[in-house]
């Protein structure tokens, strides 16, 4: 075989048809879902933006609601409070899930039982979970009683109705999703790659950093994005297990209060839009970090 001849071969054309030719039947099939997206998502979304720019007491379009939000410390500090919950929570959830999923990538004993236990919280719902956490980690809960009985602490720890309570609750809700997603992603990577890296002189850590991490990067990035967006919208946990009037008054609570306690839908919409923008910013940062991660791990050997 002449390698040069192969080298000059062009990749095969994938498309057999004109790329812009529209198939009437295909379009007709798309109509219901398009309608659904338009009615259920695009319209409310645009209406929310419009409504945030039109407070009822003023005529015409105005940024007054946004100005009000960012000049009132009681309101704008919710952004930092929310970041303060969402970022550590995302890092912890993805970090723990990644370690566990990586350890389980080739299967372990009792895998099915372990996975079932881990996934159970999804089926229980937030409220039941919150009640359970209140009972278990509360001042008179089993957790504190065990520590007291064991003589590890003298005073019960305050683990609920504060920042830690919210983190506990978020972790338990989001960890199963994140773990299952990463486990699926990681166990899909060819184990032969790990073996070949080992025979080329890479120890377990080098295999993780140089081979597995770049290949897992897309999955990790998706996990980060999903967990971050979910925790940025934290609402029930922040109310049930946190201090909704103070330390865990997240941006979602601020929006809720505007809408259903003060009945100012326009202001509430503005808060929701701000929340959306910060979530979007978070996603952009995650995508940038992902690129960074891959380049660092391959250290340029891929791009010479």
């Amino acid at each position: 075989m002449s390698p040069r001849a192969v080298a000059s071969a062009r990749p095969k054309a994938r498309r057999l048809r004109e790329p812009h030719a529209l198939d009437a039947a295909a379009v007709a099939c798309l109509v219901p879902s398009l309608l659904y997206v338009l009615v259920m998502f695009v319209y409310p979304f645009l209406y929310g933006i419009y409504s945030s720019l039109r407070p009822p007491q003023r005529a015409g379009l105005t940024l007054a609601n946004y100005v009000a939000f960012f000049s009132d410390e009681w309101q704008y500090r919710t952004v930092w409070i929310t970041f303060g919950i969402a970022v550590p929570n995302t890092v912890i959830v993805v970090g723990v899930a990644l370690l566990l999923a990586y350890g389980m990538r080739r299967g372990i004993r009792f895998e099915r039982a372990i996975t079932t236990i881990l996934v159970l919280p999804i089926a229980l719902g937030v409220i039941l979970l919150a009640e359970g956490i209140l009972g278990f980690y509360g001042g008179r809960g089993w957790f504190n009683q065990m520590l007291l009985a064991a003589g590890i602490i003298n005073e019960p720890l305050t683990l609920t109705h504060n920042y830690i309570g919210v983190l506990l609750s978020l972790f338990m809700q989001q960890f199963p999703f994140c773990f299952l997603m990463l486990l699926g992603y990681i166990s899909g990577i060819d184990p032969g790659l790990e073996n070949s890296a080992r025979t080329l002189g890479a120890g377990p850590f080098t295999v993780f950093y140089r081979v597995m991490l770049p290949l897992m990067a897309p999955g990790i990035a998706i996990a980060f994005a999903l967990v971050f967006v979910m925790s940025f919208g934290v609402f029930p946990s922040a109310i049930l297990l946190g201090q909704p009037a103070g330390a865990t008054r997240t941006i979602a609570i601020a929006a809720y209060q505007q809408a259903f306690e003060r009945y100012d839908m326009s202001y509430a919409s503005a808060i929701a839009v701000v929340m959306g923008l910060f979530q979007l910013a978070g996603l952009v940062v995650i995508i940038l970090l992902r690129r960074r991660m891959v380049t660092a791990a391959t250290m340029g050997v891929g791009k010479r």
Binding site: G192, L193, L200, A202, V301, G302, K303, R304
Partner: peptide, 20 residues
């Protein structure tokens, strides 16, 4: 199944052990 690293070029693959 060859087990080449899909995220590295041919150069990166062959250079892998030498880089380590």
């Amino acid at each position: 199944n060859y087990a080449l690293f899909p995220h590295l070029t041919v150069f990166g693959n062959v250079a892998f052990g030498l880089t380590l």
